[in-house]
Amino acid sequence: MKKVFERPKSLTDVHFTYCAGCTHGMIHRMVAETIDELKIQDRTIGVSPVGCSVFAYEFFNFDMVAASHGRAPAVATGLKRSLPECIIFTYQGDGDLAAIGTAEIVHAATRGENITVIFVNNAIYGMTGGQMAPTTLIGQKTETTPFGRDARAHGYPIRIAEMLATLEGSSYIVRTSTHNPQNVRKTKLAVKKAFENQLNNKNFNLVEILSTCPSNWGLDSIQSLKWLEENMIPYFPLGEFKNI
């Protein structure tokens, strides 16, 4: 029998440190597969954030740089400007990208930095133990919104993809999900396009991927996928917001 599905070469052998059922791992695989398929492993540099994926540099099997919280797009800018022939991507969660790092992502996008951003949105802070994220839904209970997020007190969840799509410098902005095989396949296609665009010098590319947090949502793996589908997608619609 022939092996038709195996671990991509762009992943190390290190076991992921994510919780059981957390979809970060799927997204890691899709990024690594894309890099294998595009044959760019020897010139790709990933920028890991602060958040659950802080150890992403352990898992990706190519040069990696760890950024401070929220600053991955700035670090990626410094890298891409000095290594234009390399492929640079950031891998960021919702706290990193959409709260503390809002300025960095907006300005990297508006400058049209030729980088790829993998934005993992699971509507909660995972690493610090389940606090409100900028993408936490109205009514959603977290450690810091124990009675549910109230718009008057905590504001509204931010739709990053829609916002960045309005900027002249962005070229490919898409939101996908990981809640079922069909959407995982779509996510893979989007990730691949976001890297191909960089290879073709097409400015700024971002894939926002709806993801789960079973541990902090207090649900099991399967319930989490269902919760994502039923609660997140209505507020964070899937689709391409920009493709030029």
Partner: peptide, 18 residues
Amino acid sequence: AESEISAINMVYGASCAG
């Protein structure tokens, strides 16, 4: 850059590149 914070992190990125 858009801020001093961004600027120093761009420096960080470029320094990583050697």
